[in-house]
Simulated assay, not measured.
Amino acid sequence: MLGIGIPELILILVIALVIFGPSKLPEIGAAIGKGIREFKKATSNIEESISNTDEDKE
């Protein structure tokens, strides 16, 4: 997908741990997860709307 391997992922997590500290990481992870879920829901709604519009034209 993005070409991120295990070493890069570990480096990113270590940098995040140093910057934000261990107490903030769960909050940040939850916020990122919620944002990704909302983005996926919005894109699926858009795709559904487009397919419904295409079906109406036929």
Results as ranks from 00 to 15, higher is better:
K40E: 13
E48R: 11
A30V: 01
E38A: 15
G33Y: 09
P26M: 00
E58H: 09
P22S: 12
S51R: 15
L17V: 01
I4R: 05
E8T: 06
K24Y: 09
I28G: 02
F39A: 05
E38D: 15
E8N: 10
I10N: 07
M1K: 10
P26G: 03
E58D: 14
G21I: 02
I19K: 08
G33C: 02
K57T: 06
T53Q: 14
K57P: 01
V14Y: 06
K24A: 15
I15T: 11
A42S: 09
K34R: 12
E55T: 08
P7C: 02
I50M: 06
T43L: 10
V14W: 04
P7L: 02
L25V: 03
G33V: 01
G3S: 07
L13D: 11
I32G: 00
T53P: 00
A31D: 01
S44G: 03
L25Q: 02
E38L: 13
I32N: 00
R37W: 10
V18G: 01
K40A: 12
T53W: 12
P26A: 02
L2Y: 11
V18K: 10
I10Q: 11
E47K: 13
L13Q: 13
I4K: 04
E38P: 00
L13T: 06
D56K: 15
F20A: 02
L25G: 00
N45K: 13
A30R: 14
I28T: 00
V14F: 05
G29N: 08
